[in-house]
Write a protein that binds this DNA or RNA. Structure first.
Lengths: 118, 118
DNA sequence: CGGTATCCGAGAGGATACTG
DNA sequence: CAGTATCCTCTCGGATACCG
């Protein structure tokens, strides 16, 4: 696999592929949401909420909205009362999964390697 | 590739492997620093500073200190005047490179796929 | 049920000035 | 040259309250 530099001199850092990717999956919860959807296929808003420890209702809404805007998840709304909304991964979203796996694996393997870890 | 869930129910999110990894390479500049060191081998503080657009002197110091504390880079100080300090990747730091490449590649390939991208 | 609106605190990172 | 010390701003995410 031949790579040019991903951080060529003078490149504005926020325009690198890395930072584009980070802007989509970075932050505290997005990766967890994507994972849940990988494993469960389709989930309602409340189902995600219950499975992610610590997230607030509002934050989950914001995260899902951003993920949808970035084309990583699909939001399917059923016009009924009470409302029902389902979320699932897009093809684009699924293409991120190997990367998430890599990062998880690396973290699991290397956590604790550093004596006085932060 | 067989994986268990990286986000098991009830897991506190900040203790997942993913978030451990993100805590090391997340943020605006760390990945750029790691990349530069991959390509150049050994660099002085000022050399890194000149190659990363937008970073402040102080922020670079903080980033390098954290990367060193996390065992990803080595700081080598020459006790002379004027001071000379060199930075290079550790083995642990090098093991992260494939992940950085993955994220760069994905970003380069998928940037612009979304119509009204943020 | 699945939101939005509003307010707020913590932390990342920037600007500037100073030191060995 | 390399690094602190302040101070400041901006974004992320949390808390609470209200709406269709």
């Amino acid at each position: 696999m031949e790579h040019g530099s991903c951080v060529p001199q003078g490149t504005e850092i926020t325009r690198t592929g890395f930072h584009y990717t980070l802007s989509l999956i970075g932050g505290k919860y997005k990766m967890a949401i994507l994972y849940l959807l990988t494993e469960c296929g389709v989930l309602r808003h409340n189902a995600i909420y219950r499975r992610i420890e610590g997230i607030s209702y509002k934050t989950l809404s914001v995260m899902l909205k951003e993920l949808a805007a970035d084309g990583l998840v699909v939001r399917k709304e059923y016009p009924q009362v009470p409302p029902k909304v389902e979320y699932m991964l897009t093809e684009r979203g699924r293409s991120l999964i190997p990367i998430l796996h890599n990062m998880c694996d690396w973290g699991e393997r290397h956590r604790g390697d550093v004596p006085a870890s932060r």
